[in-house]
Nucleic acid binder design. Structure first.
Lengths: 235, 235
DNA sequence: AGCGTACTTGTACAATGTAAGGCTGTCAAG
DNA sequence: CTTGACAGCCTTACATTGTACAAGTACGCT
């Protein structure tokens, strides 16, 4: 099976890094990160595994590329958002961009893991954060506060809050936790009441894991933004 | 090489799950997570790889166990901390426990990755969060607010803020980022000023990655705690 | 036609997790 | 003491993965 000619159009369509990355995203979208192996990716492109290595140094580099594609998707997604004009709307400007990022994460539920496993930045990320910087400045923050703010937001700035103990996306093994809860509730009195009180279901699919639904995400986000705004006012 | 008898004491020391987990932690401590393979672990215990499977279902189960050991270490580490007595000191009680957790994370820099990759909870985690629940209640929070608070704190509750783009612990590939920064600074005007303004070195080894030094951690932590306290007062 | 460059493939290997079944020592019951 | 059963450990083997290496193929240029 050679990939020189596309069987449909019969036109030669050489492999490119872009095509590879796009295929990688698609592969992960249906099948999860585990499905993204070099062989499977090559297969999806009608090519042998080793062919990928001409365009991509190794798998880490591939994931770096995938991460960049995802952030670029955020940038496109947010392209139409109005800029911040001053201290009055910096918070709203941040909020809408972060929500935009979150939309992209909901499209690619594996993306948080890829992003968190990257060790180096890339152009898209820098651009993305540069946008935040503009907003912080428009809001009248010092560089120092802006810097703290970015770190404080952490992964939330990219639209997700990587919580621990998320049942793997796709699989339904939440049952294990339920068991444990029931078991411990007897010994840990508060937990019983607690579990009763907070029982909340999640009808829509706005979840990125255990309890990380839209509501929780926004709660924490606003907590941060409000806190930052207060610090900003204090100078 | 059979493991029946310990060469030193010449006493038979059977494998146990505890010994395996302890060895796993030690292995990861020097060598990182990559060094924690079933074969290497078996080697460290003077045993064959497959012997581990009698005590541990598979590698996922091993990591589950390791995660639990780490949280148990936090619990021990925090055992002596005074309880919260009321609304006046709930924040301090939280703060000291989270700092305690952070100490443990600094001892096991690989632990954040293990914890974040777990999909199910365990007894130790439940105990740990139960302690928080007691504090929240002592502080006069509603269960609902307590619940939000836990999620908002997220991984910070366990002593780390898993930021993106952390140079891998051990390796020094921060250079890549520096390059990128320099490259983009020309096009992104704000960044130049920004980088100048925030340049901060990190003499002590209190870091868990890129900029996640003690200062940043505490900044975000206090932002959250202060915000929560405000919500608490508002009822 | 021939040649060099850009791209692709075939083959092969090492590292890893783990399935399946065999070996061995210990200990209780006969 | 013998016998059997079982807990604990090992041997062998295999599938999956990333990727080194070298040889192959197509295509533009002279």
């Amino acid at each position: 099976m050679t990939a020189e000619t596309d069987p449909e159009t019969n036109i030669r369509r050489p492999l490119t890094k872009q095509r590879i990355l796009a295929a990688a995203v698609a592969l992960a979208d249906d099948g999860g990160l585990d499905a993204l192996t070099m062989r499977a990716l090559a297969d999806a492109l009608g090519v042998e595994a080793m062919s990928l290595y001409y365009h991509v140094a190794n798998k880490e580099a591939l994931l770096d590329g995938v991460a960049e594609v995802v952030v670029e998707e955020i940038l496109e997604n947010n392209a139409d958002l109005p800029p911040a004009t001053g201290p009055g709307d910096w918070k709203q400007a941040m909020r809408s961009r972060i929500q935009g990022a979150r939309q992209v994460m909901l499209r690619h539920k594996w993306a948080p893991w890829v992003l968190e496993s990257r060790t180096t930045m890339n152009g898209a990320v820098l651009l993305y954060f540069h946008g935040f910087l503009e907003i912080f400045r428009a809001g009248g923050m010092s560089y120092d506060l802006a810097h703290h703010a970015m770190h404080a937001l952490g992964s939330r700035a990219l639209g997700f809050s990587q919580e621990m103990f998320n049942p793997a996306p796709g699989t339904e093994d939440e049952g294990d936790d339920e068991e444990l809860f029931a078991e411990m509730a007897a010994e840990l009195p508060l937990f019983f009441e607690f579990m009763e009180a907070i029982a909340h279901d999640d009808p829509d699919d706005q979840t990125l894991g255990w309890c990380d639904d839209q509501t929780e995400f926004e709660f924490a986000l606003d907590l941060m933004l409000d806190g930052l705004d207060r610090l900003r006012q204090e100078g």
